[in-house]
Structures are given as C-alpha cells and as structure tokens.
Design a protein around this nucleic acid. Structure first.
Length: 598
RNA sequence: CGGGGCGUGGUGCAGGGGUAGCACGCCACUUUUGGGAAGUGGAGGUCGGCGGUUCAAAUCCGCCCGCCCCGACCA
C-alpha cells in the first residue's frame, strides 16, 4: 500500500482521551469514534484486527474448535427459555420487529449454541465438540470507557464446549486455558489467569485472563508464595483465629468529631481492623420491589466486597444509601452501626472476621459517640455473618498464609464451566450407551478482540507511537523515500515492487512530504521494520534498515529483499522465543490449579 | 443513574452582548527534502439543538442532546 492512496490520516494533535494507548490508536489513524462506545476501524486498525483474529482462529482450530457463525439479532423466546430475558437488566438491548415480536441484540450466544446442539447432537457419539465464532456482541453498558477497553458494540471470539460429563468439560476447560495463554503470548502481551466470579447463571468454575496494567478496571489478588490468584470479587483470605477474651460490658464512649475509621481508631487507640465499620446500602431484593436498607459491617481496615454482599443478600440492585435514608432508618451518619436499629429498619450483614473477634469498637448511632466492647454474637443478634470484606494487602493468603499482593488489570478473556443450565432449559440432550438421556455439559469461553487490541497497544508503545509486534502490525515494513531525487524514486519503487511481489507487507510512504513528517508517521504507526531510501543512503550504498526499536544500518541495494526477509525472520524468531518462554510455566499452572489432571 | 469537566472550520484551541479568530491540516504555485520546511495566494464555521431575554446572542437565561473523566454498573 502506498501512503498516498491510504484511507485514514495521522494527527499531530493529541485527542482529549485519557489512555495514552488509545490516543495513539486515534492519532495513528487506526480507529475513529462514532459515538460513546462505538468505533470504526480504519484500514490500518482493521488489518491489525484481522491479524489478531487469525491468531484466535489458529489457536481455536488447534484445540479442535470448529468455526461457525450465529445471528446477532435474536428472538426473545430463547432468552426467555434460558431465563436471561428476565435476569439481565438493561445491558441486553431489546426491541421489536415490524410484527411486534420481542427481539434482542445478543450479548453472548449460549442460547443459540444450545439450540444448535439440540438439533445436531443426539448421541454420545456426537460428543465432545467445540464450536466458536468471531462475532459482534452488543452490550448496552451504563458507561463505556478507555477507547476499546469497554465498548458497547464489540467483536468477541466466543467458544462453546459440548461434553457428555464433567471430566470431558474439565478437558475442554484445560484446553481453552492453555490456548488463552498462547493467544496472549502470540499477541505479545503478558498475562495472568485468576479465579473469577461464576456469575448469576451458575456454573462452578471460572477464570479470567488478565493483562496487568494500572489502567485496568479489575482488581486482582495474588499470592507470590503459593501462586493463588483471584479477582478481588471472589478472593478468599485467611480468617483470624477466634478470640477467647472475656466479653466486656458494652459501653458508650464520647468521640467528638471522629467520624472516620482513621479518626476513631486514633482517638481510641485501637487497630482499624478492630473497628466495626458499617456501610449502608439500599437494595432491591426482587426486581421492582421497593428498596430496603442493608447494613454491611466490615473491619475498618477493609472495604465492602459488593459482589459478596450481593450474593449474601440476593440483591438485584444495590446502591449506597443517602443521608436521608440513613436518617429515616434511625442511623446516624458517621456514627453508624447496627446498634439500636430495628430489624425492620435494616438487614444487617456482618463480616465473618468481625464475628471471630471480641470487644470491638463501633458506632453508637448517636452523634459524637462510639461503643466499646461490641461483640457481634451478643450485640448484633439477627445479623447474618458471612465473608463480606474485600481482600486487602493486610490479609493473609487463604491457602498458605503469606501476604497478598493487589494489582489492577484488564480482563481480555474469561472461561466458564457452565454445566447443564442452558442444555437443560433449551433441550440439548444426548443418549448415552444405555440409551439414557442426559443434558450436554457446556463450557463457554470468550475473548474480547477489541480489548485484546487495546491491551496490545497499551503494552507496545513509546513516546513516539506504537511499537507493534510483527504478529499484529498492520504492515511488516514501512518504506520511506526521502527527497525528489530520481534515483531515489526509482530504487524505492523497485524495492516496493520487489517486496510486494515476494508477499511482504509494505506500507510505502511515497508522498512528497518532508523526511521528518514521514519518519514521525512511520514511528506513530508502529511498523516493526523501517526502510529508508534517500540520497544519503544511496551514497552509502543502498537502503537504511531500522527496526522500530533498534539501531539503523545500511544494506546494499542488491540485497534489500534478502535482508528484509532475514530481518523479518529474525523478528518472528524473537517473538516465537518469547511465546515459548511465556508458555513454559503454563503446564505446571494447569496441573496445579485446574481439576481433571493432565 | 449521581458528581465533575467540555461542546466554536477537518484536528486542537482562544474569544464571551455589536465585523467569528489562532495554530495545525487542506487546495494552487514556487523554492525545499534525514526528524513534524518556507514564501505567496486561496477554500472552509447557521459557534451542539430548541426556546427565551435584547434594537442586537457564539456570548445572558431555561430546557434538551452529545462527548470525556470519577463513582455506581460490568454474563
């Protein structure tokens, strides 16, 4: 491709976006925004997207996946049969067709796969199978952000495994686990797998694949000692040993002006973890019912884990209570506690760690006062006690007791052991050897293609632009001609022809522009190898070779093609070596963390 | 949905009751060509929308819409 014919311009000015990698994708002419969470891919961006898709296809094919293609627009009845029509809120975009029939834009494809399975699988001989597609998903997110990190319309590689039993599902799950590491490695991003929430649709095992990056939306918990890794939403921590101190008498103590845990613990000289912090939420326990107050009580050193609170209470909608609502329930903001609240006013849920401790400090529900010697079992009867606090670095690992580490990350993929929910509700049954019918055991495995794209850009850029791996760069070579010298133009043209004929992907900057502009654009677009042909390079004997991340050297004009080939080969070898290194520990990780043996 | 910020040529911004401006980009010609060249000439905007105040609104007021960030949410 000649730059003089390329659709899509580069921009010198920096867009008003927060994420640097996204600024670069916009500036380099890879992407253009249509509206919040909706992006067009321009030719360069689309070429990279296609290369990512090729990696996805190769790795899915390698584990026996068969590519299919399912509709985005789907009738409501399959969603009603699976139960998701009612259990999913506005994220599922619904509309009616001209006949007034309820329809939805698919946010994933379990229902359709179950239906396909029902029609195409009838015997254990038809199992196992893996099908996958790369398809548009639409999720009407309350808030898109970070460019391609969270969009409303996006491409997903979604795969579905079909097995007769749990051991079969375990095998498929392992295969995807391995493939997801390989995909990230080939795309050039380091990745970690963490345990994740199985979601409201059941299933019993799920992992997220995380690119560690502070721009990420997810909070992850790691134990460096034993390798435990989990999303903070589900991270287990070791509970303190039950204390056996004598329960002191509950007493009010004056704490003027001390409304935060830090102030109270300093004023009364107690550890923040011994302050029972009460956080008031308003929850809809059933859709459409009036919200009622839930008081979550956690150690002052921790935050409430909303996922846990939601599952502990069954709340479908959860939001912080307003000052008026706290007031109406008889609480006093800043001095809030379960003490003195009626059972009707609020449902109280207490973190289990607090239940094991004795003689805590908590609010007195009276301005300027707190309570000493608060004991959950004695002073908070009727409360539910469960794990409620989000893991912190102060908590010991639940497995080995070592300190935990907390990092931010971007989830580019997740895998779920679904079980038989969808196959049962949509009639995907098979006959076993004895003719007995059972539901097909399903797994579901997703990778956000655009999100993977964003991770790649986030990992591979510098102050001048993108620095893309050869595996995903839109072109392999940026060819730059300098000046209007006839000999330069001739050699550049013939080199372009020769490389193109040899199947090498070249972006030839043939514009009548100054060298600075061409070099800056080449750097911005991030091609791994740059070839410059100029009066100076001709004087030195040929063309200048420069890797995007490397030094330049002169190559004789006769050997341009062979040198390009060997440079590209070397770059591929480096990336392959990186993939090998990255994959080396994965088998041990699978053996250690996944069910089903190897 | 709550909080904050912002909507003015293609891009990035300034202006803030009376002639709509700057930089980059774009077009033409000339001179240039190793890190975002120079000169000359030119094109391009109903100032997000609707309504109001006013002799007069990009500017003041009201409502709405859109975009970004934080939070909520995130199968």
């Amino acid at each position: 491709m000649r730059v003089s014919s390329l659709f899509g311009v580069t921009r010198r000015t920096v867009p008003a976006e927060d994420l640097v990698s996204h600024q670069l994708l916009l500036r380099a002419g890879f992407l253009q925004q249509l509206a919040t969470g909706l992006y067009s891919f321009l030719p360069l961006g689309w070429r990279t997207e296609q290369k990512i898709r090729r990696i996805l296809r190769e790795e899915m094919d390698a584990i026996g996946g068969q590519e299919i293609f399912m509709p985005v627009v789907q009738p409501a009845d399959i969603w009603q049969r699976s139960g998701r029509w009612n259990s999913i809120d506005q994220v599922l975009l619904r509309f009616q067709d001209r006949r007034g029939r309820d329809m939805a834009l698919a946010l994933s494809h379990e229902e359709v796969v179950a239906g396909l399975t029902s029609a195409n699988v009838s015997s254990y001989r038809d199992l196992p199978r893996i099908v996958y597609q790369i398809q548009t998903k639409f999720r009407d997110e309350p808030r898109s952000r970070g460019g391609l990190l969270r969009t409303r319309e996006f491409s997903m590689k979604d795969a579905y495994s079909l097995d007769r039993d749990q051991p079969g599902l375990d095998r498929a799950y392992q295969a995807h686990f391995r493939a997801y590491f390989k995909i990230a490695a080939r795309a050039g991003i380091p990745v970690a797998a963490v345990l994740s929430d199985v979601g409201v649709m059941g299933g019993h095992l799920a992992h997220e694949f995380i690119y560690l990056n502070d721009a990420g939306e997810d909070t992850l918990v790691f134990c460096d000692s034993c390798g435990y890794a989990a999303n903070q939403e589900v991270a287990e921590t070791k509970l303190p040993d039950p204390e056996t101190d004598i329960e002191g008498e509950l007493e009010e103590v004056e704490t003027p002006g001390a409304t935060t845990v830090a102030e109270v613990s300093a004023f009364l000289n107690v550890e923040p973890s011994r302050v029972a912090k009460s956080v008031a939420f308003m929850a809809e326990l059933k859709r459409g019912q009036p919200a009622q107050m839930i008081l979550a009580v956690v150690p002052g050193s921790a935050e409430v884990n909303l996922a846990r609170l939601r599952s502990a209470t069954g709340a479908v909608d959860l939001r912080p209570a307003t000052a008026e609502e706290i007031d109406a329930a008889g609480g006093v903001a800043g001095y809030m506690s379960p003490h003195g609240l009626s059972a009707e006013a609020a449902t109280v849920v207490v973190d289990e760690a607090l239940g094991r401790r004795r003689n805590l400090v908590t609010g007195a529900n009276r301005t300027g006062w707190h309570l000493r010697n608060f004991n959950v079992a004695r002073d908070c009867q009727g409360a539910t006690t469960t794990r409620l606090a989000a893991a912190t670095t102060a908590d010991p690992c639940s497995v080995c007791g070592a300190p935990l580490r907390i990092r931010r990350g971007i989830e580019y993929g997740n895998i779920f052991q679904l079980g038989t929910h969808y196959s049962t509700s949509l009639g995907a049954l098979y006959d076993d050897e004895s003719g007995e019918q059972s539901p097909v055991v399903m797994g579901s495995y997703g990778i956000g293609v655009g999100r993977l794209f964003a991770c790649i850009a986030e990992e591979h850029h510098d102050e001048r632009g993108l620095t893309l791996p050869i595996a995903v760069a839109p072109y392999q070579v940026a060819l730059v001609s300098v000046g209007s010298d006839e000999a330069v133009a001739q050699l550049a043209d013939s080199a372009y022809q020769e490389m193109s004929d040899a199947g090498i992907e070249v972006l030839f900057d043939d514009r009548n522009a100054s060298p600075g502009v061409k070099f800056a654009d080449a750097d911005l677009r991030g091609m791994p190898l740059r070839l410059t042909i100029s009066p100076r390079s001709l004087g030195a004997g040929g063309a200048e070779f420069k890797r995007r991340l490397g030094e330049s050297r002169i190559v004789a004009r006769e050997s341009i093609l062979s040198e390009v080939r060997s440079e590209l080969e070397d770059l591929r070898r480096q990336e392959a070596e990186w993939v090998r290194t990255t994959m080396a520990p994965v088998e041990a990780l699978i053996a250690q963390t996944l069910p089903g043996g190897t």
